[in-house]
Amino acid sequence: MRIGIIAPPWVPVPPVRYGGTEAVVDDLARGLHATGVDVRLFTVGTSTCPVPRAHLFDEPVAPMNASLPEAAHVLAAHDELDDVDLVHDHTLLGPLVAGRRGATHVPVVTTLHHLLTPPALRVAAEAARHASLVAISRSQARSARGVPITAVIPHGVDLDAYRPADGVGDHVVFVGRMAPEKGAHRAVRVARAAGRRLVLATKIRTNEERAYYEEVVRPLLPPDAEPPQEMDRARRVEVLGSAAALINPIRWREPFGLVMAEALACGTPVLAFPEGAAPEIVDHGRTGFLCADEEEMVAALDRLDTLDRRACRAAAERRFSSERMVDDHVALYRALLEAPRTGTAGARSARALLRGA
């Protein structure tokens, strides 16, 4: 089985610092290669994922989400991957561009890494004419509003990399982009109300991120607060594993929330609001707490001793390993390669095959 994977052109694979999608692509490509799959990755020139790679752009493209370079990247990818059995595209525009061009002579899978807003749903509906869509949570799949979803495959994490720390401190941690929807300002308020030291592991690069930090988050921080840092994986694992809890106060339908799975792999409980995929990741009262509001989240920090950190790690091993993610994708690829290639019949047949697996 020859699988071509197309990564977005914004961040190398694996990411040096921030990059959730690219971390998932890296784990998937490595895992497929380890199982004997002939996998080829189309990415950017600075990527180091240890599988055969090709690229159009030597460096990551900036600004992120620019449509013209993404379209050029995708078209070059399909030219490069013209001899594979199946293409797995992790870009937004990829299936849309390739389908219009008529480049989809093999089955195409696209993973929906983004929130399905009305504009995104319009693109996804068109992409579904040429590709099989993978949702990363049941919550995201429910928000598809009739757009056909072939499979739901939650992300996995490298359990050898994300491990519990030797000791646990009293601090709590926030990991995510410095953006209002990620809720750093709420994390600061919760930590201060609970008298906990907060570590902010966050990306601040764009003008919008800087403005949000300076105007909203920074005024809430105590005078002796640690400045936020964009951490590499090793440092992030250290901070996560030694934290009393991850505070993930999102107030939007986050499609998955990789950092929650990473925290559980480190044996660290998660405090979140029951938005998006959070209820699919956090087992309330066992691996964390799903809280109604900030006051309830503050109170939950006093109940962390009722949770067993070993249960957090066990949940990650059972449900969020990269091996499980790879196995789910191999099953999908095989189902699609066995299905007829007639319009949307292939995706429908694949869904039927997967249900019978």
Rank of each mutant, 00 (worst) to 15 (best):
residue 139 S to Y: 06
residue 147 V to R: 01
residue 171 H to W: 05
residue 89 D to A: 09
residue 60 P to H: 04
residue 122 R to S: 03
residue 108 V to R: 01
residue 69 P to W: 03
residue 109 V to D: 00
residue 194 A to D: 07
residue 98 A to F: 03
residue 146 G to S: 08
residue 129 R to C: 03
residue 94 G to L: 02
residue 162 Y to R: 03
residue 169 G to D: 13
residue 196 R to F: 02
residue 186 R to T: 04
residue 105 H to M: 02
residue 86 L to V: 15
residue 179 A to T: 15
residue 173 V to R: 15
residue 103 A to Q: 08
residue 64 M to G: 07
residue 104 T to C: 08
residue 101 R to A: 15
residue 174 F to H: 04
residue 70 E to V: 03
residue 173 V to L: 15
residue 158 D to F: 09
residue 176 G to M: 12
residue 168 V to D: 13
residue 196 R to T: 09
residue 138 R to N: 13
residue 171 H to S: 15
residue 84 V to K: 11
residue 66 A to W: 03
residue 168 V to M: 05
residue 170 D to N: 12
residue 189 R to S: 11
residue 128 A to G: 02
residue 78 H to Y: 15
residue 91 T to I: 12
residue 142 R to H: 10
residue 69 P to Y: 09
residue 60 P to F: 05
residue 187 A to Q: 09
residue 179 A to C: 04
residue 67 S to C: 05
residue 183 G to C: 11
residue 77 A to I: 14
residue 200 L to E: 06
residue 75 L to P: 10
residue 95 P to F: 07
residue 61 V to C: 07
residue 163 R to T: 14
residue 84 V to L: 11
residue 94 G to D: 06
residue 69 P to G: 06
residue 188 V to Q: 02
residue 135 A to T: 05
residue 113 H to F: 00
residue 99 G to V: 04
residue 150 T to Q: 12
residue 173 V to W: 13
residue 151 A to M: 09
residue 66 A to M: 08
residue 146 G to R: 10
residue 165 A to S: 15
residue 99 G to R: 07
residue 91 T to V: 07
residue 93 L to D: 03
residue 72 A to S: 13
residue 113 H to A: 00
residue 151 A to E: 13
residue 165 A to K: 09
residue 165 A to F: 11
residue 78 H to T: 14
residue 128 A to N: 01
residue 157 V to K: 06
residue 156 G to P: 05
residue 201 A to V: 13
residue 108 V to C: 03
residue 164 P to D: 08
residue 100 R to W: 08
residue 76 A to Y: 14
residue 70 E to R: 07
residue 133 L to G: 01
residue 124 A to T: 03
residue 131 A to F: 00
residue 118 P to R: 00
residue 105 H to T: 15
residue 125 A to Y: 00
residue 196 R to V: 04
residue 94 G to R: 05
residue 94 G to H: 08
residue 139 S to Q: 08
residue 109 V to A: 00
residue 186 R to M: 02
residue 73 H to Y: 11
residue 123 V to K: 00
residue 166 D to Q: 12
residue 68 L to N: 05
residue 101 R to E: 06
residue 68 L to W: 07
residue 82 D to L: 12
residue 110 T to F: 01
residue 174 F to Q: 09
residue 187 A to F: 07
residue 62 A to I: 02
